[in-house]
Design a protein around this nucleic acid. Structure first.
Length: 482
RNA sequence: GGCGGCAUAGCCAAGUGGUAAGGCGAAGGUCUGCAAAACCUUUAUUCAUCGGUUCAAAUCCGAUUGCCGCCUCCA
């Protein structure tokens, strides 16, 4: 078993070899909590959710750390503009932490609905101010940073490798057009490690340079290395953070620790709406909450995972609906397999064939995910397996033992890892409607036997209106909630 | 202007040197009192265009065109 990942640093797929055998440390850039989580967040965190789950079920012990940016993320570039959270707080006329708390809860709520597993733990920038100050101080002492009037800037010229991730060379960076030169910086590319707080700034801390707050990039450097080590395995995040955010993280961390920052950079691509990037400033973003109101979590995951994580996902309502339609076959299969297991069928004409196929499919899906998390390939394999298994079921050729085996494979990949197979719903109401349904089905059967089809149809229609679907099969009727 | 990526059927989307997965949609069929579900068949002689390398290319190289992202906050 070899897992390969596309490393943005080397720009090619590489075999994934953990620093410490059997253990993986992964850090993923989390959201800045000042607004609603949207489809873009969903793509990113579903992607890393699948990556982590796949690593885990491949036998690796994973420590997955994700940050919550709750301070210091400016609206403009790294050294001007306003703190995003503070700005939102001013608009809402609340304390900044109220903004932070509200959107953190919303984020976690949405992620849970999307079946994104909790990381090993979340870390917050505001809870690591001391460590960040220490890091900045250390960078100043080592000559990588300088202080100007309460601000501390990182000197990019002190790190010759600056630009190695994004492929940008310092000398190529033309000054002026979009990068506004700030008076007190030595180089326009220098970025803020510590910002002096303006008089009205609420979230601020004491530091050797006066009251202020940390720059955006330093939090990730500090928290990632604190919990995962000076050099760790995987750093993930959205493509748009490659520059400047990740580039700055590398510069800070490596000049601070004199060690490589991380081994594999994994970047997920963007979500577009009608081919255009989804962005807050463009006003075309779709929130998770809104989408979850109209689609199942599984449908959203299937939509996201049907595109490779390194390709952009183009959002259309039609695409999500199509993903949901495809999913029903998977759900149906699960129900059908459970039925065979419950009936404890012993005979199985196709048992040998099915068992063999099941093993092959299991290996194939693993292979697809091993190959840089090819989720579309994995889903395709799963779907063609569904067709094959349905054929066996149609011929009544499976025993309970083999059905259980297949069910385990389908639930492992479709359910546990990809998260596109809905969990079997338990009792949703206080009254168990199963016996009632049984009675109605028997009654309806009698009507059918007596050729009173109008009555039988009326029962079926009334139940449909009530949210229960009757399906007549060769072996009698079955029902399910719509 | 600089850096990077992508172009595969009506739509979504794998495949990265050996002769085009899968899903949605559509059409026909089997089953069925009718439905639903499921299954079967059909739906790209061809992978943006033009050259080149090779016995062999969607896959490698070059050029062209189009689209997208980053270079300012963004997952």
């Amino acid at each position: 078993m070899t897992i390969t990942l596309y490393n943005s640093m080397s720009r090619q797929k590489e075999e994934f070899v953990p620093i410490e055998p059997g253990h993986v440390g992964i850090y993923v850039c989390g959201p800045t909590v000042y607004g609603p989580p949207h489809l873009g967040h969903a793509k990113s965190y579903v992607t890393f959710d699948v990556l982590v789950k796949h690593l885990r079920q491949s036998g690796l012990k994973v420590r997955y750390v994700q940050n919550i940016t709750d301070v210091g993320h400016l609206t403009d570039d790294a050294d001007a503009g306003e703190d995003k959270i503070q700005r939102q707080a001013r608009i809402d006329q609340v304390h900044p932490y109220e903004v932070v708390d509200k959107w953190t809860r919303q984020y976690m709520n949405d992620m849970e609905k999307l079946r994104v597993a909790h990381p090993s733990f979340y870390v917050r920038a505001s809870q690591h101010i001391g460590e960040q100050i220490e890091a900045v101080q250390s960078l100043v002492e080592k000559g990588h940073a300088y202080v100007v009037d309460g601000n501390v800037y990182y000197n990019v010229e002190s790190f010759p490798e600056y630009g190695k991730l994004s492929g940008r060379r310092l000398e190529e960076q033309k000054e002026g057009v979009r990068v506004e030169t700030r008076g007190d910086k030595r180089n326009p590319r220098d970025f803020a490690l510590w910002k002096k707080a303006d008089p009205g700034h609420i979230l601020k801390w004491n530091s050797p340079w006066g009251e202020g707050y940390p720059g955006w990039h330093i939090e990730c450097s500090v928290m990632a290395t604190k919990y995962l080590g000076k050099t760790f395995d995987i750093h993930g995040g959205g493509l748009e953070n490659k520059f400047p955010h990740h580039e700055c993280e590398i510069a800070q961390s490596e000049s601070l620790n004199d060690a490589p920052f991380c081994r594999y950079w994994v970047h997920n691509n963007m979500v577009t709406v009608d081919g255009i990037k989804m962005g807050k400033s463009l006003g075309n973003f779709r929130t998770c909450e809104d989408l979850l109101a109209r689609h199942s979590p599984e449908a959203l995951r299937a939509f996201v995972l049907s595109t490779h994580y390194r390709s952009p996902s183009n959002y259309t309502e039609e695409a999500i609906t199509a993903a949901a339609s495809g999913l029903t076959r998977l759900t149906q299969l699960q129900t059908a397999l459970l039925e065979i297991v419950e009936k404890n069928v012993s005979a199985g004409a196709s048992d040998n064939e099915a068992e063999k196929l099941s093993g092959e499919v299991d290996a194939k899906i693993r292979e697809r995910l091993d190959d840089d998390i090819d989720s579309p390939g994995a889903i395709a394999t799963l779907y063609s397996f569904v067709t094959e298994v349905n054929r066996f079921i149609g011929a009544s050729a499976l025993s309970a033992r083999v059905a259980a085996l297949i069910l385990a494979v389908v639930q492992k990949w479709g359910g546990d890892v990809l998260g596109i197979l809905p969990a079997i719903s338990g009792k949703e109401s206080e009254v168990d409607i199963a016996p009632i349904m049984q009675m109605l089905i028997e009654l309806r059967q009698e009507m059918k036997a007596a050729k009173k089809f109008d009555v039988a149809d009326a029962i079926r229609n009334r139940l449909k209106d009530a949210g229960v679907l009757i399906e007549d099969t060769r072996d009698g009727a079955r029902w399910k909630r719509i």
